[in-house]
Amino acid sequence: MNLARTSKIVAQAFDAAMVEAGGTLPLWVTLLSVKSKELANQRELAGMIGIQGATLTHHLNAMEAQGLLTRRRDPQNRRVHQVELTEAGEAMFEKLRLAAIAFDKRLRAGIPDERLAEFADVLAALRANAEIKPPQS
Protein backbone atom coordinates (compact mmCIF):
# COMPACT_ATOMS: atom_id res chain seq x y z
CA MET A 1 0.00 0.00 0.00
CA ASN A 2 2.81 2.41 0.82
CA LEU A 3 4.34 2.05 -2.65
CA ALA A 4 0.97 2.56 -4.39
CA ARG A 5 0.11 5.60 -2.25
CA THR A 6 3.55 7.15 -2.80
CA SER A 7 3.36 6.48 -6.54
CA LYS A 8 -0.03 8.18 -6.75
CA ILE A 9 1.13 11.25 -4.79
CA VAL A 10 4.30 11.61 -6.86
CA ALA A 11 2.36 11.20 -10.13
CA GLN A 12 -0.17 13.85 -9.08
CA ALA A 13 2.60 16.25 -8.07
CA PHE A 14 4.43 15.65 -11.37
CA ASP A 15 1.22 16.24 -13.32
CA ALA A 16 0.72 19.51 -11.39
CA ALA A 17 4.29 20.55 -12.30
CA MET A 18 3.55 19.86 -15.97
CA VAL A 19 0.32 21.90 -15.81
CA GLU A 20 2.17 24.76 -14.13
CA ALA A 21 4.68 24.71 -17.00
CA GLY A 22 1.86 24.90 -19.56
CA GLY A 23 1.46 21.24 -20.42
CA THR A 24 -0.01 18.01 -19.10
CA LEU A 25 1.39 14.61 -18.25
CA PRO A 26 -0.01 13.00 -21.45
CA LEU A 27 1.41 15.88 -23.50
CA TRP A 28 4.84 15.48 -21.89
CA VAL A 29 4.92 11.71 -22.36
CA THR A 30 3.85 12.06 -25.99
CA LEU A 31 6.43 14.79 -26.73
CA LEU A 32 9.13 12.78 -24.98
CA SER A 33 8.23 9.64 -26.91
CA VAL A 34 8.23 11.43 -30.27
CA LYS A 35 11.47 13.27 -29.42
CA SER A 36 13.23 10.07 -28.39
CA LYS A 37 12.94 8.74 -31.96
CA GLU A 38 13.74 10.53 -35.20
CA LEU A 39 10.37 9.43 -36.57
CA ALA A 40 7.81 7.31 -34.78
CA ASN A 41 4.62 5.86 -36.21
CA GLN A 42 1.43 6.09 -34.21
CA ARG A 43 1.23 2.37 -33.40
CA GLU A 44 4.78 2.31 -31.99
CA LEU A 45 4.13 5.56 -30.15
CA ALA A 46 1.00 4.19 -28.46
CA GLY A 47 2.97 1.14 -27.36
CA MET A 48 5.81 3.27 -25.98
CA ILE A 49 3.38 5.43 -24.01
CA GLY A 50 1.27 2.49 -22.86
CA ILE A 51 -2.11 3.70 -24.13
CA GLN A 52 -4.65 2.54 -26.69
CA GLY A 53 -4.40 3.76 -30.26
CA ALA A 54 -7.73 5.63 -30.07
CA THR A 55 -6.59 7.54 -26.98
CA LEU A 56 -3.32 8.43 -28.68
CA THR A 57 -5.21 9.64 -31.77
CA HIS A 58 -7.22 11.99 -29.56
CA HIS A 59 -3.99 13.40 -28.02
CA LEU A 60 -2.28 13.69 -31.42
CA ASN A 61 -5.28 15.45 -32.97
CA ALA A 62 -5.20 18.07 -30.20
CA MET A 63 -1.41 18.46 -30.45
CA GLU A 64 -1.57 18.80 -34.22
CA ALA A 65 -4.32 21.45 -33.88
CA GLN A 66 -2.03 23.33 -31.45
CA GLY A 67 0.78 23.20 -34.01
CA LEU A 68 3.03 21.00 -31.83
CA LEU A 69 3.46 18.15 -34.30
CA THR A 70 2.77 16.99 -37.80
CA ARG A 71 1.60 13.62 -39.07
CA ARG A 72 2.06 12.27 -42.55
CA ARG A 73 1.47 8.95 -44.20
CA ASP A 74 4.47 6.68 -44.53
CA PRO A 75 5.24 6.40 -48.25
CA GLN A 76 6.16 2.72 -47.77
CA ASN A 77 2.92 1.89 -45.91
CA ARG A 78 -0.01 4.29 -46.38
CA ARG A 79 -1.78 2.87 -43.31
CA VAL A 80 1.01 4.15 -41.04
CA HIS A 81 1.37 7.78 -39.95
CA GLN A 82 4.80 9.25 -39.21
CA VAL A 83 4.84 11.77 -36.34
CA GLU A 84 7.32 14.67 -36.03
CA LEU A 85 7.60 17.66 -33.71
CA THR A 86 7.26 21.16 -35.17
CA GLU A 87 9.28 24.16 -33.95
CA ALA A 88 6.48 24.89 -31.48
CA GLY A 89 6.57 21.24 -30.39
CA GLU A 90 10.32 21.43 -29.86
CA ALA A 91 9.86 24.60 -27.78
CA MET A 92 7.11 22.98 -25.67
CA PHE A 93 9.28 19.89 -25.23
CA GLU A 94 12.13 22.05 -23.92
CA LYS A 95 9.83 23.96 -21.56
CA LEU A 96 8.38 20.74 -20.12
CA ARG A 97 11.83 19.11 -20.01
CA LEU A 98 13.07 21.92 -17.76
CA ALA A 99 9.98 21.53 -15.56
CA ALA A 100 10.60 17.75 -15.34
CA ILE A 101 14.24 18.32 -14.36
CA ALA A 102 13.22 20.83 -11.68
CA PHE A 103 10.59 18.40 -10.35
CA ASP A 104 13.12 15.56 -10.25
CA LYS A 105 15.57 17.78 -8.37
CA ARG A 106 12.85 18.72 -5.86
CA LEU A 107 11.82 15.08 -5.47
CA ARG A 108 15.40 13.94 -4.76
CA ALA A 109 16.25 16.84 -2.42
CA GLY A 110 18.00 15.74 0.75
CA ILE A 111 18.44 12.13 -0.35
CA PRO A 112 22.09 11.08 -0.75
CA ASP A 113 23.12 9.52 -4.07
CA GLU A 114 23.95 6.17 -2.46
CA ARG A 115 20.43 5.92 -1.00
CA LEU A 116 18.94 6.81 -4.38
CA ALA A 117 21.04 4.08 -6.03
CA GLU A 118 19.91 1.56 -3.42
CA PHE A 119 16.30 2.67 -3.90
CA ALA A 120 16.62 2.15 -7.67
CA ASP A 121 17.86 -1.39 -6.99
CA VAL A 122 14.92 -2.06 -4.66
CA LEU A 123 12.45 -0.76 -7.26
CA ALA A 124 14.04 -3.00 -9.91
CA ALA A 125 13.69 -6.00 -7.58
CA LEU A 126 10.04 -5.13 -6.89
CA ARG A 127 9.34 -4.92 -10.64
CA ALA A 128 11.06 -8.24 -11.23
CA ASN A 129 9.14 -9.90 -8.40
CA ALA A 130 5.84 -8.50 -9.69
CA GLU A 131 6.55 -9.97 -13.15
CA ILE A 132 7.12 -13.47 -11.77
CA LYS A 133 3.99 -15.50 -12.20
CA PRO A 134 3.05 -17.68 -9.23
CA PRO A 135 2.99 -21.44 -9.90
CA GLN A 136 -0.42 -22.85 -10.87
CA SER A 137 -1.93 -25.16 -8.27
Score class of each variant (00 low, 15 high):
81 H>T: 06
45 L>K: 13
133 K>R: 07
92 M>R: 12
32 L>T: 08
81 H>I: 01
2 N>H: 14
54 A>P: 02
76 Q>N: 09
13 A>Q: 12
129 N>Y: 08
130 A>S: 05
37 K>D: 13
38 E>G: 11
30 T>E: 06
104 D>L: 07
10 V>S: 01
99 A>S: 09
134 P>F: 05
35 K>H: 14
101 I>V: 13
109 A>K: 08
14 F>T: 04
122 V>C: 08
5 R>V: 14
118 E>G: 03
110 G>W: 08
122 V>G: 04
9 I>F: 15
40 A>H: 00
22 G>F: 00
87 E>V: 06
12 Q>F: 04
120 A>D: 15
48 M>A: 07
137 S>L: 03
15 D>R: 15
68 L>H: 15
34 V>G: 00
97 R>G: 03
39 L>N: 07
75 P>R: 02
30 T>W: 10
33 S>Q: 09
42 Q>N: 12
70 T>S: 14
28 W>L: 01
18 M>T: 02
104 D>E: 11
134 P>D: 12
25 L>V: 03
77 N>T: 13
5 R>P: 02
106 R>W: 00
32 L>P: 00
22 G>A: 07
110 G>F: 10
125 A>N: 05
41 N>M: 01
46 A>N: 01
37 K>C: 13
23 G>H: 04
105 K>G: 01
66 Q>P: 03
12 Q>Y: 12
27 L>W: 11
23 G>Q: 04
58 H>V: 03
47 G>E: 03
7 S>F: 10
